[in-house]
Design a binder for these strands. Structure first.
Lengths: 335, 335
DNA sequence: TAGTATGATGTAAGCGCTTTCATTTATAGC
DNA sequence: GCTATAAATGAAAGCGCTTACATCATACTA
């Protein structure tokens, strides 16, 4: 691999000049520039970005920590971030935190030690305090899918409460009055917020919430099935089920079908997230769209604007979810 | 951020000694080691991996190029690789190639310039020659989901032909004799191989293949729908449809349902890949399992063994797909 | 007791770049 | 034609590490 020395020698100029044409920030005469470019071309030279990073203390790469690398949700998010960064000539370094405190911290440390210029974090297990402290250091961070008041500017989040409200309201407007709620793990703020939205919609319609019709899952489809079993076992009537995410909705739907319930005739179901699978399951899932790809892009833009000085970019911190009507929820049958 | 200098100063030893305890490769007295560790602890020191890479010409990170960051397939693969690498203390740097030659080359260049110790590549657009040339350089590469005879050792691939054969054979054994085939883009070797497997099974059962019942899609669900439309429009009878992947199968199934066809009573469908969605769609999809997560792990192990000297690891280059029977294919109704 | 391994530590030269500062060269003004 | 100024270039000092080599104790050996 050719180094800058060989280029400078071949071009008959100094190191510094070669560096200048690479970064084209200082002025170099047209003539010299061409000589250097020709030399680079001839040698097949490509700068060693490790050395660049070390010398400039800037790596042109942004670190991303997600909970998992697989699954429809993170894929969408990563893709959004990568696209935006790539277009701006920045690169991404990705680590997984596995929703576990030690692992998340470890991932953050790794990204910092890689000299990332900024971090985009989707963390769940780590505390607010830790993040606040982290943010007070030199490493710029942006949090995705999490809202911390003290770090409001650095947060790209979804109004989960509104989403929960919209999902429930849809069913109420369709005439349902007996609703069950399949919650996510309540220690996660998004699960809690969605649930609160549900309660608000219920209250607004003058309905009291029956705790016996609440089940708490873990956002996986298997827990959706398990919770649905529990709910049905109680023998309490309900004509609609609000699920805190699509995967649990899919699990629940399967169990409902196994129990001879027709969706949506016998039971209306709404999900949350609008994952790809929402379009694939049958009947197609009515759900709340979570624009995670767009939010990833926005996080990337935050970095481009605040770290890489692309002033022109417009930023938006809080996204509003919208209802996507498909086939899994319908007006309650008269009588 | 503390540097090695400050650690050495605080511990009262030289740079070299600190470096030694970090890499614990040379012998350092117990006493000195403890002093150094204490100093590191006290300063909250973490080595700058950029500097380490530059100095050692080894980055402890492996570069991964995938076509896309989103989608169930790549997520599974990335996850497999990351898990295995993380467990070995290696890190991953990820880039997307978008199935486009320029972009794939660009991604490879990027990964090389980041001083990765090895590359795991899932590339589609780049030529065999390019890869052969690349492999002859200093950067070790392993190819995933691609087989190039000259690089056989570096390839982790699936026997796609066998998969196509198994999918078709299942239907033939269920008594179907009129099969349509929904192919992937034929310029991709996996699409072609699956198709060849189909032909082999047909021939083996003494059936001739009717070109009118062949449609070529692009592996996306929308093309599955479009191709299904075309196939139905021809008015030719067929009782079973073999799809080159699950997503197209899902698209095709939807169209079939819209045309009043019951799956599997009126039409049996089998897919390929065994994506998560295969379990979610209704009826659940009979398909060929593509152990992509396991293959990702294997690619990681290849690197651990060949580059990081973990000799003990067992390697396997070619994976065999297996049939997963679910509900979308059934024996043909008598008469 | 000198002679020699051997283990522990230090010294210093890079790794391939960026960047400040100094120097040289061109351009313009008079 | 000579200075004032700007533009182009070069020299050299790092960035934070690793590592070959040198040095210094210490422990054996004969």
């Amino acid at each position: 691999m050719a180094t800058i020395y060989q280029v400078s020698e071949l071009a008959g100029v100094s190191l510094a000049t070669v560096s200048r044409v690479m970064n084209n920030n200082a002025r170099v005469s047209e003539n010299t520039r061409n000589k250097v470019l020709a030399a680079m071309e001839q040698l097949g030279y490509r700068p060693n970005s490790i050395a660049q990073s070390l010398a400039s203390n800037r790596s042109n790469s942004v670190g991303i920590l997600v909970s998992e690398l697989h699954g429809p949700f993170y894929g969408e998010m990563l893709s959004g971030i990568e696209n935006e960064c790539r277009a701006a000539g920045k690169h991404v370094i990705i680590a997984a935190g596995h929703s576990e405190e030690a692992s998340e911290k470890d991932g953050i440390e790794f990204l910092i030690s890689r000299s990332c210029d900024a971090l985009i974090l989707h963390v769940e297990a780590v505390s607010d305090d830790y993040l606040i402290k982290l943010a007070s250091g030199n490493m710029p961070i942006v949090l995705i899918n999490r809202f911390i008041p003290q770090l409001a500017d650095n947060c790209i989040s979804l109004d989960n409460e509104l989403g929960g409200y919209l999902a429930t309201k849809q069913l109420l407007q369709q005439g349902h009055t007996q609703l069950a709620y399949l919650a996510g793990p309540m220690w996660k703020s998004d699960a809690k917020d969605r649930y609160h939205g549900h309660l608000r919609a219920m209250a607004e319609h003058g309905l009291s919430f029956n705790p016996a019709l609440l089940a708490e899952g873990d956002f996986q489809d298997s827990s959706g099935s398990a919770c649905m079993q529990q709910l049905l076992a109680k023998g309490l009537p309900f004509s609609a089920l609000v699920c805190a995410n699509d995967e649990m909705a899919a699990g629940a739907m399967e169990v409902a079908r196994a129990h001879g319930l027709n969706v949506p005739q016998d039971l209306s179901i709404v999900g949350f997230d609008n994952l790809i699978l929402a379009r694939y399951i049958y009947p197609k899932l009515t759900t709340i769209d979570y624009p995670i790809g767009e939010m990833g892009r926005m996080a990337a833009r935050w970095v481009l604007k605040n770290i890489y000085q692309q002033q022109a970019l417009q930023l938006k911190n809080v996204f509003e979810p919208v209802l996507v009507c498909r086939d899994s929820a319908s007006a309650i049958a008269a009588g």
